[in-house]
Design a protein around this nucleic acid. Structure first.
Length: 586
RNA sequence: GGGGGAAUAGCUCAGUUGGUUAGAGCAGCGGAAUCAUAAUCCGCGGGUCGGGGGUUCGAGUCCCUUUUCCCCUACCA
């Protein structure tokens, strides 16, 4: 039995996150994890994440805000965590690279091991240095004359005028965009990750699925195409920076003073250190090894498409490069990297500073978080960019959740309440074979199959199809007619129909849980004694499960509206608010 | 400039290794029913698959080219 170590991309603690991030890397991961916990067992799954809190961008923004670096990232850490809480993202641990107690030591050890194993080398080169602010300048913070077309406001990486590639060292009369000073060239030593070497030593065979110790699930087209192209021409990458904020390069090394590990080097190590922090919190310091160094672990990275290179090439290389220097065991390599595309808002990118965003607080105080989860999942950018639109959100909420699912629950429970005194009808000979129940069985089975396969939209569609089949069953049996019949056979059919409906609602409550956890829980409350048995333990998914007969006389609870409808006026207000907010910022 | 992904009914999307009249949901239209959050169920219409070319007995599905959108391009995670 495999265990699953699931990660979501570490959000950068440099600004707000929005539904777009949630749709790409967090919500699908959470639905997957909730499914795995139910289908494989809680102890077989670990879900880790945290904020990425280093890097030059953070130092600049913090300085602008007149805040200390730690203070600055703390603020964003809290804000980011708040949105995840609204979406009920169920991380086992959510830490951060600047707050995780194990992070510095772990990152440095990664570095040292790579150095010892000669997967890292150093090089000394000249770079632009601002004497005024006492720091080396990243290419993008330089402006100067383009060596090709002479355009004077070219940036250090690309000329906006002629589009040519610029080597920052060739800029004419460069000026620092940070402090306006004229930088000087100064020598600095940096360390580089030798990716070509690691490619030959195992990255290639892992990627191709030829590494028996590290099987892979298979890559999505966006991942496969990108990585294949990248592996044809792999170069070494610098992994250190001159910065006052980050994980220090081990200080015993010559020239390490004032240098930190480059943010993308230390960030993915955050997955490992977060696991260590989790283990320590469990009182089992070594438990992290069971996840990172156990060949039965399936390592799954949920990311956005902008992160493919790091999770498919750089981080696996770093793991590979550790050899067996940790406890005489290698690290596991990713089994699956579900990279999603981007999620936009009403046709444009989410952009908080331009007023093009959803106000999280207002959103969650007005709408059902489970409806948001379900809609975002059903429209998530699995294969291509996708978008959130208010009208589609309304349609999902009303047509699917309220009308198909909510109403099904409502009509069944109210019928049982009125006609059978809120109890499972007795003397029932269960209906085991029925066309529409067979459809429901198949649809419920597909929910599991699709979740297993990380096909989230299809899983959601299957869930709706199951509810639809149950509606068909109810209509086909027409218990509202048979209930008034004098014929014993009719009356028996009516009782059997409701018994099956209750049994299937119990199944629905379990299949709905990964998508809409709160609603699933409230459905179980409504089902009362019908859902009394604890079923959160390992539950067999992906098979045609025929629910067993409900106990006759079992009492059900009170039916409540699970998914309130959203009316047109409300949606119009939201769209107007969005446009007004964008207009104000423009 | 280079690399990658995407483009299929009004909308959102499926379409396995190329193979009979290209599917679903939503919206729309018609009907049935009335237990239920005026919720459900049945039926119907509607695409030639971004444009062009090619391979093939046969292509949405492979190749070339072109247009549009998005991502990466290595110090904007």
């Amino acid at each position: 039995m495999s265990r699953y170590l699931v990660t979501s991309a570490l959000p950068y603690a440099n600004g707000p996150i929005h539904f777009g991030h949630v749709a790409g890397a967090y919500l699908p991961a959470d639905v997957y994890v909730r499914y795995l916990r139910m289908a494989k067992g809680e102890e077989q799954v670990l879900f880790v994440c945290g904020t990425d809190e280093h890097g030059v961008a953070i130092t600049l923004k913090a300085e602008q805000a007149g805040m200390g670096y730690r203070e600055y990232v703390d603020q964003w850490h809290e804000e980011i965590k708040a949105l995840f809480d609204q979406f009920s993202i169920s991380f086992d641990i959510f830490t951060g690279t600047a707050r995780c107690p194990q992070h510095v030591e772990t990152s440095q050890r990664f570095f040292e091991v790579l150095l010892e194993r000669e997967c890292i080398f150093d090089k000394t080169e000249e770079q632009w240095f601002s004497e005024e602010s006492g720091r080396f300048l990243a290419d993008r913070y330089l402006q100067g004359g383009c060596h090709e077309c002479g355009y004077e406001k070219a940036r250090g990486d690309e000329c906006p005028s002629c589009g040519t590639w610029i080597d920052a060292l060739q800029l004419k009369n460069p000026v620092s965009l940070i402090d306006g000073s004229s930088p000087i060239l100064k020598e600095t030593k940096h360390w580089y990750l030798d990716l070509p070497k690691l490619q030959a030593e195992g990255l290639d065979s892992w990627y191709k699925g030829e590494d028996e110790a590290n099987p892979v699930k298979g890559w999505k087209p966006n991942v496969d195409g990108y990585v294949q192209a990248m592996l044809k021409d792999l170069h070494e990458r610098p992994i250190t920076r001159d910065l006052p904020w980050g994980v220090p390069v081990p200080q015993h090394l010559e020239g390490a003073e004032g240098k930190v590990l480059y943010v993308w080097f230390d960030a993915p190590i955050g997955y490992v250190s977060a696991t260590m922090e989790w283990a320590a919190a469990q009182g089992k310091e070594d438990a992290w090894k069971d996840w990172w160094q156990d060949s039965d672990t399936r390592l799954v990275h949920f990311i956005g498409k902008d992160n493919i290179a790091f999770h498919m090439v750089v981080f696996p290389s770093m793991l590979l490069g550790q050899g067996e220097e940790w406890n005489n065991k290698p690290f596991v390599l990713p089994w699956s990297v579900p990279a999603n595309e981007f999620y936009n808002l009403e046709g444009r990118k989410f952009n908080t500073s331009a007023g093009w965003y959803l106000d999280n607080e207002s959103f969650f105080s007005t709408y059902n978080p489970d409806a948001a989860r379900f809609h975002v999942l059903m429209s998530m950018p699995e294969t291509a960019d996708a978008e959130f639109t208010w009208e589609e959100f309304q349609a999902t909420n009303n047509s699917l959740l309220a009308d198909k699912v909510g109403n099904l629950i409502s009509r069944v429970l109210k019928f049982v309440d009125k006609r059978f005194d809120s109890r499972v009808p007795d003397g029932v000979e269960s209906i085991l074979e029925h066309e529409f129940l067979a459809d429901a069985d198949a649809a419920f089975a597909q929910v599991g199959e699709h979740l297993e396969n990380q096909s989230f939209r299809k899983a959601g569609q299957a869930l709706i199809a199951a509810a639809s089949a149950l509606n068909q069953f109810f209509d086909n049996m027409a218990p509202w007619k048979s209930v008034n019949s004098e014929a014993p056979a009719e009356q028996a059919a009516c009782r059997a129909t409701l018994e099956r409906c209750l049994a299937y609602l119990e199944l629905l409550s379990r299949r709905l849980a990964p998508f809409c956890p709160e609603s699933a829980a409230s459905l179980r409350v409504m089902l009362g004694e019908v859902a009394a048995g604890a079923t959160t333990a390992t539950d067999v998914w992906g098979t045609n499960e025929v629910p067993s007969l409900c106990t006759a006389g079992a009492k059900i609870g009170e039916a409540k509206v699970m998914f309130p409808k959203i009316d047109n006026d409300q949606i119009a207000v939201e769209i107007e608010r969005l446009n007004a907010s964008a207009a104000t910022q423009a």
